[in-house]
Simulated assay, not measured.
Amino acid sequence: MAVSLCLAGCPPASSSSPGRLTVVAGLMWRPRKVVATKTETDRTDNWFDRMAIRHLSKSIQATTGMVNSKEGYESLVESASSVAHRFSPKEQRELVIQALHRAFPKPILSLAKILMPQHRLTRECFAIFTTIFFPWLVGPCEVKESEFGGRKERSTVHIKKCRFLESTNCVGMCINMCKMPTQKFINESLGMPVSMVPDFDDMSCELIFGQKPPEAEDDPALKQPCYEGLCKARKKYSVDCSA
C-alpha cells in the first residue's frame, strides 16, 4: 500500500508521461486488511495545545449540537466519534468544514488568501506553519523536500504518526473527518491545493501543498478497509467505518 500511495502522491517520472504512474498505481492497487498498533503514544500537551484542542472540540460541539463533558484530546475524539456515529460520510465532511469555519474567523482566512497567492514561498510557508502550530492535532511532523513543477522545494509535511488516527483507530474517520474536509477547506478558504496521503500501515501521513488531490474514485485511501478488530469508533459507537 505504501508504494501505491507514494506513486499516487508523487509527480510523474517525466514530462512526457504526465499522470501515468498515478494511473498505473490505481490499477494495480488492491485494498487489504491492516492492523493498528495496540499501544498509544504518550503525549504531553502544553498550554497552547490544550487551548487549541478545546477550541476545535467546542467548535465541533457547537456546530453539531452534541456536547460532551470530557477534557483534552479525549474531548475532541469524543466529539468526532459522535459525529461519525450519527451522520453519513458526506454529512460528516460537511459538518467538519462548518466547524473549521467556526474555528477560524472568515476575515482572517480571506486576508490570508489575498496575501498568499500560489507561489513556492507560499507553499513552503504553509508547510512550516503546519509543523509549528498543528502538532497538537496530528502529532510530531516535519518539513520534507519534494518536487513541484520539476523543481525541488520544501513544501511537503510528513506526519510521523497521526495522533487523530492513532486515537480513533478508524480509517473512515480519518478520511471523512480529516483528509477530505481538510483538503477542501484549505483549498477553498485559503486558495491552496493540498493532497493528504495517509499510510495506514504505520499511521503516518503526508500533506503535499500545491498538489491537487486525486478524484475520489482514483484515491487509494478511499478504498482502504478499516483496522481489523481494533477500530475504537466501531467498538464504542458502532460507527460505519466506510469512507
Rank of each mutant, 00 (worst) to 15 (best):
Y227C: 02
I97A: 07
F133T: 14
W136S: 09
M173V: 07
K113C: 07
K33F: 07
E215F: 04
L100C: 11
R30L: 02
S17K: 15
Q224T: 13
E74L: 10
P11N: 08
S17L: 15
T130N: 04
K235W: 03
L190M: 14
L7M: 14
G19D: 01
R54K: 12
G26R: 08
P140C: 03
L5H: 10
K33C: 10
T168V: 12
I186T: 03
S189D: 09
E188S: 08
D49Q: 03
I132A: 03
L115T: 13
E188A: 07
P105C: 00
T182E: 11
M203I: 03
K58P: 05
E74H: 06
E217I: 04
T22I: 04
L115R: 07
A216S: 11
K113N: 09
N68S: 15
G72T: 03
S242Y: 07
S242A: 11
V34A: 10
S75G: 13
A103P: 14
A2G: 11
A99H: 08
L21P: 04
V67A: 06
P213Q: 13
G150A: 11
P31S: 10
V77C: 06
S16W: 12
D42M: 12
E74G: 13
N187H: 15
E215C: 04
K90E: 10
E142V: 09
H101F: 00
P214V: 02
K152H: 08
K160C: 06
